[in-house]
Amino acid sequence: METASGSEPTNTEAITPDAEERQWLMQIANKDRTALKLLYDRYAARVFRFIVRMLNDEARAQELVNDVMLEIWKSAERFEGRSAVSSWILGIARFRTLNALRGHKPEIQGLEQSPEPVDPTADSSHIKGREQLQALLRQALQRLSPEHREVVELTFFHGCSYSEIAAIVDCPENTVKTRMYHARNRLRPILERLGITALDAGEMP
């Protein structure tokens, strides 16, 4: 297994609106393809991960990554630097993803609508360990609504602060916090088992 900090860019790189990325955008605005390559190398995998986890459609995600990068090529000169570069890029990715999601309604279901609902009353002895719990959690994550899931993904995969997420999804910061709160409540049946498992394993902080 690779992690977000492995072959894909680190969270530190993602959340820092550093001057290097702004410089790349200025170069891209001047049609510099080298800068586009540098930005692609840094962001394409992250953008792909965000889209494919939201869409559950690999082929469409591959297309949308290039749509996002082409949009950057076209719009780089309009980047005003009022937000972090990463927020701007993820905002474009989110916009494209939500548009694509309109044709993917069946993939988005609430936990209560899931054909394989997570049973909070199941015997915890069936959960063999963290890996099983993680698999169960991933399954549950896929059934969150797009609004809840994007907040979870942006927070924990992309390492965004709540203010950055508010900028990306274009909503108040309190709304971001509330969405995370509700997402956790939806995942609670699984997360509560974590407490049991973690306590059993003596891993609690």
Binding site: T3, A4, S5, Q134, L141, R184, L191, L194, A198
Partner: peptide
């Protein structure tokens, strides 16, 4: 701290790219 542990676990799970 139990809730914090849940979020940490969630982070670990989400940030991991499985095979």
């Amino acid at each position: 701290r139990l809730q914090l542990a849940e979020y940490s676990f969630l982070q670990h799970t989400v940030s991991e790219v499985t095979a």
